Amino acid sequence: MTEPEKHTLIEDAQAIAYGSTMAAFGIVILTHLGLVTGQTAGLAVLISYATGWGFGPVFFAVNLPFYIFGYLRMGAVFTAKTFLSVALLSGLAMWMPQHISFATLNPWLGAVLFGFISGSALLALFRHGASLGGVGIVALMLQDRLGWRAGWVQLGFDAVLFAAAFLVRDPMTVVISFVGALVVNLVIAINHRRDRYIAT
Results as ranks from 00 to 15, higher is better:
155 L>V: 11
172 M>P: 00
136 G>Y: 07
57 P>I: 15
142 L>N: 00
165 A>E: 12
34 G>R: 13
96 M>L: 12
67 Y>P: 02
89 L>C: 05
157 F>P: 00
164 A>I: 15
112 V>Y: 07
174 V>D: 06
40 T>Y: 01
113 L>C: 08
45 V>P: 00
62 V>D: 07
13 A>P: 00
81 K>I: 08
27 I>T: 05
119 G>Q: 06
124 A>C: 02
46 L>Q: 07
142 L>I: 11
76 A>W: 15
109 L>N: 04
171 P>N: 09
9 L>M: 02
96 M>E: 01
192 H>N: 14
60 F>A: 15
182 L>W: 14
94 M>S: 06
188 I>A: 06
88 L>Q: 13
198 I>M: 09
63 N>Y: 12
104 T>W: 11
137 I>E: 08
51 T>H: 04
39 Q>F: 10
189 A>R: 12
83 F>P: 01
166 F>L: 14
45 V>C: 06
163 A>F: 14
157 F>G: 10
159 A>E: 13
115 G>N: 07
179 V>Q: 05
78 F>A: 07
71 Y>I: 12
86 V>N: 02
124 A>H: 01
194 R>T: 05
46 L>F: 02
117 I>E: 02
70 G>P: 05
187 V>Q: 05
36 V>M: 09
140 L>M: 13
27 I>Q: 02
88 L>P: 03
105 L>Y: 04
145 R>Q: 12
1 M>N: 02
199 A>P: 00
1 M>T: 10
140 L>A: 06
52 G>F: 13
183 V>G: 01
195 D>L: 08
171 P>D: 08
67 Y>Q: 09
10 I>N: 00
29 I>D: 01
18 Y>Q: 04
144 D>Y: 11
55 F>M: 08
54 G>L: 15
182 L>I: 14
154 Q>N: 12
162 F>M: 14
136 G>H: 13
98 Q>K: 07
15 A>Q: 05
36 V>K: 04
6 K>R: 14
80 A>D: 04
8 T>N: 05
186 L>E: 10
142 L>S: 00
2 T>V: 09
113 L>M: 10
23 A>L: 14
196 R>C: 05
137 I>L: 09
181 A>Y: 10
76 A>Q: 15
10 I>H: 01
182 L>Q: 12
200 T>K: 14
86 V>Q: 08
11 E>W: 06
30 L>R: 09
27 I>W: 02
177 S>I: 14
197 Y>N: 10
33 L>Q: 08
188 I>L: 13
93 A>S: 10
114 F>H: 03
65 P>A: 12
130 A>Y: 02
